[in-house]
Simulated scan of single mutants.
Amino acid sequence: MASPPAPQPLSLLEKLDLLVGQLSIVGSAVWTVVTGVFRGNDYPKEYKLHVLHAILRKSLSRLTGRQLQALIPSTSQGYEIFMKGKRLQPATVALQHGAAGHWIGNKDAKKVVVYYHGGGFVLPAVPDHFDFYNQLITSLNTAGHDVSVFFVSYSLAPTAIYPTQLRQAISALRYILTETGRSPSDILLAGDSAGGNLALATLLHLTHPHPAIDPLDMSGPLAGVVAFAPWVNFSTDGASMRDNKFKDCIPPDIQHMWAPQYLRGLDGQGKQAQGDAWSEPCRAPLEWWVGAKAEEILFLAGRDEVLFSAIDGFVERFKTVFPKTTYFIGYGETHVAPVYSGQALGRETQQGGELKRWLASRL
């Protein structure tokens, strides 16, 4: 199958609107800096975090995916910038269907984490993705482990639509299995937000293949799967959407903006494509998760994130059919806190600490 088309440059109208949007974001930031001193309990406790999250929410709501992509380096570009900044040698592998895999750490390490980044299928990885996972594996390897990260760059919506990203995610796992010769017991899948969606969808594909994607047979189960604040459904229902809308870094309405771009295809009758078991893991029949090909699964969530209700409900059901599940909640923490809030907090997050502990016990 051919690779997805390249994104088209912004039109003149999009560029003009981008300028207006940036001015609007600056104005909102100034207002937040001034009024944030008087915020109540519905907002983050840390002032810096309050300002950061307000700016992020405004940016994500005001700008389109294409405009944001024009401002932010691509995942591959961000990886190159990070590695050169750390004086490390970049190591990138071209994968099938237009994807790429970027090594963080020793590519010959015994254990490998295949990682899918978040961003609503619209945004690339951010610098803190690379920084956090580089620090994580450095800490693990210093403690005597031998692990690296294979960070996957997949195509973004709205240029590329479902199931392109899932096909690319599966191609990354296929590469690690077939081209590097690793056993499934030496491989972990992981991802945050939309990447957590891909990690779960890839796991589901191993036992219930997506009809449009070639099956992937394995000799045994994966060592583990990490679903970090996974985007398990595209609904805006749930108490956390209301209760955490001024605490989290992502606004509730982003679901309505980005999910349709991901599911932009037509169903063959000219109607908007609907979600299915692989695009929204919560739609999979519960019994489909029985016998999932992983030794253990870790779910991470922040209690103050807008996705919490959806994640919490999914995990409680999931545990009934897959007992080897660990579920960790970072109280007072928001969406993928180690990546999107870590620098502002200036300390190790609860979720980041649990991820390190869980990985260390399984490597």
Rank of each mutant, 00 (worst) to 15 (best):
M1S: 15
A2T: 15
P5K: 12
P7F: 09
Q8I: 05
P9S: 03
L10R: 04
S11A: 03
E14I: 01
L16A: 15
L16I: 12
D17V: 07
G21A: 06
G21I: 03
S24W: 14
I25N: 00
V26K: 09
S28Y: 10
S28H: 15
A29Y: 09
V30W: 10
V34H: 07
V37K: 14
V37A: 15
F38I: 09
P44S: 09
I55L: 05
K58A: 10
S61N: 14
R62S: 11
L63F: 00
L63M: 04
L63V: 04
R66W: 05
I81S: 09
M83G: 06
R87C: 11
L88C: 10
Q89G: 09
Q89H: 15
P90Y: 06
T92I: 15
T92R: 13
T92V: 15
V93R: 05
G98E: 01
A100D: 09
G101Y: 04
G101A: 10
G105A: 10
K107L: 09
D108I: 05
Y115C: 03
Y115R: 07
F121D: 01
P127C: 10
F130A: 05
L140D: 08
N141S: 12
A143D: 13
H145G: 13
F151W: 05
F151Y: 11
F151E: 01
F151D: 02
V152K: 03
S155C: 09
P163M: 10
A169M: 05
I176S: 02
L177K: 03
T178R: 14
E179K: 14
R182A: 08
D186A: 14
S193G: 08
G195D: 03
N197Q: 11
L198A: 00
A201G: 05
H205I: 08
T207Y: 04
H208T: 12
H208V: 10
P209N: 11
H210C: 06
I213H: 02
D214E: 13
M218I: 14
P221F: 04
L222H: 01
V225D: 02
V225Y: 03
V226F: 04
V226K: 02
P230T: 09
W231A: 10
T236M: 13
D237K: 15
D243M: 12
K247D: 07
K247V: 08
I250A: 06
D253L: 12
W258T: 03
A259V: 07
A259W: 08
Y262G: 02
Y262R: 12
L266E: 14
L266D: 12
D267I: 01
Q269R: 12
G270M: 08
G275S: 11
D276Y: 03
A277R: 08
A284S: 05
E287A: 14
W289Q: 03
V290Y: 02
A294S: 11
E295L: 08
E296I: 07
L298W: 07
L300Y: 02
A301N: 04
G302Q: 02
D304M: 06
D304S: 10
S309H: 06
D312V: 03
V321G: 07
P323T: 08
I329E: 09
G330K: 00
Y331K: 11
E333N: 00
T334F: 02
H335G: 00
V339T: 07
S341A: 13
S341I: 04
Q343H: 15
L345T: 00
L345A: 06
E348A: 14
Q351E: 14
Q351K: 07
G352E: 00
S361Y: 09
L363V: 13
